[in-house]
Computed example of a mutant assay.
Amino acid sequence: MSEADWQAVTLTLKLGIYSTLILLLVAIPLAWWLARKNGWVTSIVQTLVALPLVLPPTVLGFYLLIWLGPSGFIGSSLESLGLDHLAFSFEGIVIASVIYSLPFAVQPLIESFRQLPQGQLDAAATLGAGWWRRFWTLVIPMSQGGLLVAATLSFAHTLGEFGVILMLGGSIPGETQVLSILIYDHTEAMDYDSAGTLALGLLVFSFIVLVSVYSLQKRYAAGGLGVKR
């Protein structure tokens, strides 16, 4: 592998780690709210969260490019404050990755939160435990299976993103040229050996991730992780 290939590997891992951490911070409270509430507002929010599952990545990437670019509301607002717009930047593709992978973080957490034994939470409240204490000492430990699945899926999904990143970030070495983009660039240049090596690496990694996720789900369903029946 060349230096450019290793640079793309490092950037991809960095993107995956940053995006996963942000996703968990956003997804945990959002999933908790969606799991505990009903009504048309939650239905609309859950629909918006799930949109990336059915929306073509290029469509989402196009709108993000418009909004975060120099002519968009967000991009132009940043420039008016003396900051750079977010198109064709690492920060921009982090935002894109968070939005595109959000349903992969939120859905496992919703299912995990819905299976929590309400009796234990009520008992803790009766004994004087505040909401924050109940959440961190009961909800999070009992939902560790869902958290692990959400983190694993989010990280793996981020590594394989292509359309959204290509539309918003292009292919700038060291800035936005992640593995999926570099494989495309190698293929366009008819460098099939380099493209094949990187593609095989992602294929093996994806297989390992899926095996891990299915294993976690089985242990979670059996009570080994998450809710104790």
Rank of each mutant, 00 (worst) to 15 (best):
S2C: 09
S2G: 12
Q7S: 15
V9E: 12
V9H: 07
L13M: 12
L15F: 02
L15R: 00
I17A: 12
Y18A: 15
T20V: 06
L23E: 07
L24F: 05
L25W: 09
V26R: 03
A27T: 07
A27D: 06
P29Q: 04
L30A: 13
L34N: 08
L34F: 00
A35N: 07
A35E: 07
R36W: 03
R36S: 14
G39E: 10
G39N: 08
W40V: 10
T42C: 13
T42L: 10
I44R: 09
V45T: 10
Q46E: 09
Q46T: 05
A50S: 13
V54W: 04
P56Q: 15
P56C: 12
T58V: 14
L60G: 08
F62H: 05
F62E: 02
Y63M: 04
W67I: 02
G69Q: 01
F73G: 02
I74T: 11
G75D: 01
S77Y: 07
E79G: 11
S80G: 12
L81E: 11
G82E: 12
G82D: 11
L83P: 00
L83I: 04
D84L: 06
D84F: 04
L86H: 01
S89F: 05
F90P: 00
E91G: 12
E91D: 13
I93W: 00
A96S: 09
I99S: 06
I99G: 05
I99Q: 05
I99A: 09
Y100G: 01
L102I: 02
A105C: 08
L109Y: 02
E111K: 13
E111N: 11
R114W: 14
L116K: 06
P117H: 13
Q118I: 11
Q118L: 11
L121F: 02
L121V: 11
L121E: 14
A124V: 08
L127R: 06
G128M: 10
G128F: 15
A129G: 09
G130N: 09
R133T: 15
R134E: 10
F135V: 06
T137P: 03
L138Q: 08
P141M: 00
Q144S: 15
Q144F: 09
L147P: 03
V149G: 04
T152P: 10
L153M: 14
F155Q: 02
A156L: 09
H157F: 10
H157E: 14
H157L: 14
L159H: 04
L159E: 06
L166M: 09
L166P: 00
M167H: 03
L168G: 00
G169V: 02
G170L: 06
I172H: 03
T176I: 01
T176F: 00
V178W: 01
L179T: 01
I181G: 02
I181C: 04
I181Q: 03
Y184M: 13
D185E: 14
H186Y: 05
E188A: 14
Y192R: 06
Y192L: 15
Y192D: 05
L198C: 05
A199W: 04
G201W: 05
L203M: 15
V204L: 15
F205I: 08
F207V: 11
V209Y: 05
V209Q: 09
V209S: 08
L210I: 11
S212E: 12
S212Q: 10
V213D: 10
S215I: 03
S215W: 00
S215A: 12
S215Q: 11
Q217Y: 04
R219W: 09
R219T: 11
Y220A: 14
A221S: 13
A222P: 02
G223I: 04
G226W: 05
G226H: 06
